[in-house]
Design a protein around this nucleic acid. Structure first.
Length: 716
DNA sequence: GTTAGGG
DNA sequence: CCCTAAC
C-alpha cells in the first residue's frame, strides 16, 4: 500500500558526535570548511543577521538589560524554553559589538524531563566558530537545493518551514530543529512566509499546532498576548491535499540571539527580535496523516506506487542514510558539502564502525530551563516588554513567494514600541520529501527514514532570503528602514524564505540562486516494478512533521538512541512507547537504512568533474525478492538479463548493482542473523538465495567441466 | 557493453 | 557502490 503523506515535521536537532571521525572525514571537513568560510552563512547567521538589522534601528532598553544579565553568564545570549507546551521559540536579538558573532543558545523546554532542558548554544566566535557556521550553512545549502527540486516538482508547493536550530541537549550534541510548515502555497514560487504583526509575546508557540490535535497543543505564549494559533495551523495545511496538516512540532522554545555586528553597542544586547518557531511533534498524528497520495502534482511517478513498485522517488545524490551513520552523515555533509562526503562514512557504515565526529558546532553548556533561571527570566521579560501593546492583533499575511520556493517561512513580525522591528518567524517551509518504505518496515524504521530525510535536507545548506512585497531583497547592506522593513511600515509584505545556498557550488542543478535545484529526472521513476507481494509505502513528506512526538523533548529522541555509536543523549527522556522502537532500532541498527528515504539533493559540489557518488539505496525486501526470483530463473552471470527482467523499470539499479546485491545477499545468507545488518531480509529469501546460488554455481561448474552444458533450467 | 571480483 | 580488468 502506498501511503503518501505530507508531513510537517520539526527536526529536533542533530546529534553531533563528539568524537572525531575517521581521518578521511577530517580531511574533508577541513577542505570543506575552507570552502565554506567564504560565503557560507548558516541559517542562523542569516536569521541573526536579519535580526540584527532589524534591531539596528533601535534598541530595547528593557531587553538589553535582560540580556545583559543573560549574557553575563557565559557571554552568550540564551534561549530559553518557556513554554511547557513545547513551542519552539527562537529569539534573535541584536547584540553588541562583536562583529558577526552570533551566539545562540537554544534551550528547549517542555521536555518531559525538566531537569534536562534542551538547550543548545551556537556561537560564532572566532574563526573556528565561524567555520562551524559555515559548515552548517553549507549543509543547509545543499539540502536546500534538494528542497527546491522537490518544490519544483510539486505544484502544490508546500513549503515547510524549518527553523534550524542547533541545540544540544548534552554538551556535545547539536540539535537542529526544523519546523516545517505544511501550508502550501500554490506554486513553488509562491511560497510565502507569513508575517504577523503583533504585540503579543514572542513566546507563544500555540499557533504552531499544526496537527489537528489542538487540544494537545497548548498555548505556549508566555507573553501577554497569545499569538494566534490559527495562523500557525494554516501554515501547515496543505491547500491542495486538504489533508490533515502534517505534524507540527513544538518542542519547546528556543531563542536565538543574534548579535549585531554593525552596531557598536554596549556589550549588552540591545534589541530583541524574537523568532518563534513552533514545533510540535506528535507521533500519533503521524500515522493518521498517512494517506494515499492524492497529491500527485508534479510527481508523475507517483502512480507507480500503486504498482507496489518500490520506488524511490527522490533520486538524490546526496542521500543520507543510515541512522547509524547519521552522525557521520551530518558531519560529512557539514564538512564536505558534497555527495561524496556523505558517503565518506560509507566504510564506517558498512563496517559498523561508528565513530563520532567532531562537532562542527560549538557546544555550549546546558542550562536549566527552570524559570528561576535568570537567563530565562530575562528573556521572558524582554518578550513582554518588547512587544508593543499596540499590536494586539496578529496580522498574518502571506507574502511573497520566494523565488526559491524551497522554503517559505511563516513568520510574524511584531513591532516593538520603539523602532525595533520584531519578526516572528513561525516556520520555514521545506519542500516535500518522498519516502518509500516497505510495509514490513517498523515504525521505528519509518521514523528513522523520515529523520534521515530531514537530516539530509537540513544538511544541504540553506540561507535566508528576505522577500518584501514579493521582491527579494538582495542588498544586504541596506538598513531595514531603507528597505522598508521598519516598524512604521507594514510588515505584512515581508517574507522570508530558505534558499539554497548556491554559492557553494552551482552546478546545473542550481542554476542561479533563484532557480531551484531540480532533482534528477530519474527521481521520478519508479524503482522497480515487479509483482511483489510486498508493498512499499510511499510517503511523501512535504513538510516535516514531528514524527517523533515524544522526542520533542528529547531532541533527536530515539533516533539518537538508536544510534549506538552516538553518544547517549542525555536529553532523552522520551516515553516508553518510543523506547520500544528504539530498541528495535538498536537491535537492528541499520534496519533503517533499507527504508530510506531518498532525498533529492544534489548539488553538485564543487567538483563538477567528478561525478558524485551515487546515493546509497538499500535494496528493499521487495527488490530482493524480485532479484532472487530473477536469478533463480536466469541464473547468476546474466546480470544484464536479470536487470531487464526484473529491474527494467528501476533505472537506478544497474546490472552491476544487482550483481553486487546478489553478492551481498549470498554473503548475508551465510552469516549468522546476528551479524546481519540493515533491514532484515526474510530468511526464506536468504534460503532461496543460497539455493539458487548453489544451483547456478553448480551449473556453471558443470558447464566448465563438461564443456558442454546441459542446462536444466528450472529451479526449485 | 558485460562480467567478475576486489575495494 | 565504485573501480577495473577481462572479455
Amino acid at each position: 500500500m502506498v501511503l503518501q503523506k505530507r508531513l510537517d515535521y520539526s527536526f529536533y536537532g542533530y546529534h553531533v558526535p563528539t568524537k572525531r571521525r575517521a581521518t578521511r572525514s577530517a580531511k574533508r571537513r577541513a577542505t570543506f570548511q575552507r570552502r565554506l568560510e567564504d560565503n557560507q552563512m548558516c541559517a542562523f547567521d542569516l536569521l541573526a543577521t536579519i535580526a540584527d538589522n532589524l534591531l539596528q534601528e533601535k534598541q530595547n532598553p528593557t531587553i538589553s538589560s535582560d540580556r545583559s544579565s543573560e549574557k553575563d553568564r557565559d557571554g552568550f545570549s540564551k534561549v530559553e524554553c518557556q513554554d511547557a507546551n513545547k513551542p519552539f521559540k527562537t529569539e534573535l536579538s541584536d547584540e553588541a559589538s562583536c562583529d558577526r558573532k552570533c551566539q545562540h543558545e537554544f534551550v528547549r523546554e517542555g521536555c518531559p524531563d525538566a531537569n534536562k532542558p534542551f538547550k543548545a548554544e551556537l556561537s560564532d566566535e572566532g574563526s573556528s566558530d565561524r567555520k562551524c557556521f559555515s559548515n552548517i550553512s553549507s549543509q543547509l545549502y545543499n539540502q536546500n537545493c534538494c528542497l527546491k527540486e522537490l518544490l519544483q516538482h510539486e505544484i502544490d508547493g508546500h513549503s515547510c518551514i524549518a527553523s534550524i536550530v542547533t541545540s544540544s541537549s548534552c554538551s556535545e550534541k547539536i540539535v537542529a530543529e526544523r519546523l516545517v510548515d505544511g501550508k502550501g502555497h500554490n506554486g513553488v514560487e509562491n511560497l510565502a512566509s507569513k508575517v504577523e504583526l503583533g504585540s503579543s509575546g514572542c513566546l507563544e508557540s500555540s499557533g504552531c499546532k499544526l496537527d489537528g490535535d489542538v487540544s494537545k497543543v497548548k498555548d505556549g505564549k508566555v507573553g501577554k498576548v497569545p499569538i494566534d494559533t490559527g495562523t500557525g495551523m494554516c501554515c501547515f495545511e496543505d491547500p491542495l491535499d486538504e489533508k490533515p496538516p502534517a505534524l507540527i512540532s513544538s518542542c519547546g522554545n528556543a531563542k536565538m540571539s543574534g548579535y549585531d555586528d554593525s552596531k557598536p553597542q554596549s556589550s549588552l544586547s540591545k534589541g530583541c527580535d524574537n523568532v518563534l518557531v513552533d514545533s510540535r511533534d506528535d507521533d500519533e498524528n503521524f500515522s493518521g496523516y498517512a494517506h494515499p497520495s492524492t497529491k500527485i502534482n508534479s510527481f508523475k511517478q507517483i502512480t507507480c506506487i500503486d504498482d507496489r513498485k518500490i520506488k524511490k522517488t527522490l533520486d538524490s545524490k546526496y542521500h543520507k542514510v543510515s541512522q547509524e551513520s547519521k552522525h557521520d552523515i551530518l558531519s560529512n555533509s557539514v564538512l564536505d558539502g558534497n555527495l561524496k562526503s556523505v558517503y565518506s562514512s560509507r566504510k564506517n557504515y558498512y563496517k559498523s564502525q561508528r565513530s563520532q565526529m567532531c562537532i562542527p558546532f560549538k557546544k555550549r553548556k546546558l542550562f536549566n530551563c527552570s524559570s528561576s533561571d535568570t537567563n530565562s527570566n530575562g528573556y521572558i521579560r524582554s518578550d513582554d516588554t518588547c512587544y508593543s501593546p499596540k499590536n494586539d492583533t496578529n496580522q498574518s499575511v502571506s507574502c511573497s513567494s520566494s523565488d526559491h520556493g524551497t522554503s517559505s517561512l511563516g513568520h510574524s513580525a511584531l513591532r516593538s514600541r520603539d523602532s525595533h522591528v520584531k519578526l516572528r518567524i513561525k516556520s520555514f517551509r521545506v519542500p516535500e520529501l518522498f519516502i518509500e518504505i516497505p510495509e514490513t518496515a517498523t515504525v521505528g524504521s519509518l521514523k528513522r527514514t523520515v529523520m534521515e530525510a530531514v537530516t539530509a535536507v537540513l544538511g544541504g545548506g540553506l540561507r535566508v532570503g528576505v522577500i518584501l512585497h514579493g521582491k527579494k531583497v538582495r542588498d544586504d547592506s541596506k538598513t531595514l528602514l531603507q528597505t522598508g522593513i521598519s516598524h512604521d511600515n507594514h510588515l505584512d509584505a515581508l517574507g522570508f524564505a530558505l534558499e539554497p545556498n548556491c554559492s557553494q557550488n552551482r552546478s546545473s542543478a542550481c542554476a542561479t540562486t533563484d532557480s531551484l535545484c531540480v532533482p534528477g529526472a530519474d527521481m521520478h521513476q519508479p524503482l522497480i516494478g515487479y509483482p511483489s507481494s510486498r508493498a512499499a509505502i510511499h510517503q511523501r513528506i512535504q513538510g516535516f512533521s514531528n514524527m517523533l512526538a515524544e522526542h520533542q523533548a528529547t531532541g533527536l529522541g530515539n533516533l539518537v538512541e538508536s544510534d549506538h555509536d552516538s553518544a547517549p543523549s542525555p536529553i532523552n527522556t522520551s516515553g516508553e512507547k518510543n523506547l520500544t522502537d528504539s530498541k528495535e532500532l538498536i537491535t537492528v541498527p541499520e534496519m533503517g537504512m533499507e527504508a530510506l528515504a531518498v532525498l533529492p539533493v544534489h548539488q553538485k559540489s564543487k567538483r563538477t568533474e567528478i561525478a558524485p557518488r551515487r546515493i546509497r539505496r538499500p535494496f528493499s525486501v521487495a527488490e530482493v525478492e524480485a532479484l532472487v526470483q530473477a536469478v533463480e530463473k536466469l541464473g547468476t552471470g546474466r546480470w544484464r538479463d536479470v536487470k531487464l527482467h526484473a529491474f527494467d523499470n528501476a533505472k537506478h539499479r544497474t546490472y552491476v548493482d544487482l550483481k553486487d546485491k546478489w553478492k551481498t545477499l549470498v554473503h548475508t545468507a551465510r552469516i549468522s542473523p546476528q551479524q546481519r545488518r540493515g533491514e532484515p531480509v526474510p530468511q526464506e529469501l536468504l534460503d532461496r538465495v543460497l539455493t539458487a546460488h548453489a544451483y547456478w554455481s553448480q551449473q556453471q561448474t558443470k558447464q566448465q567441466l563438461k564443456h558442454h552444458s546441459t542446462k536444466p533450467c528450472l529451479l526449485l
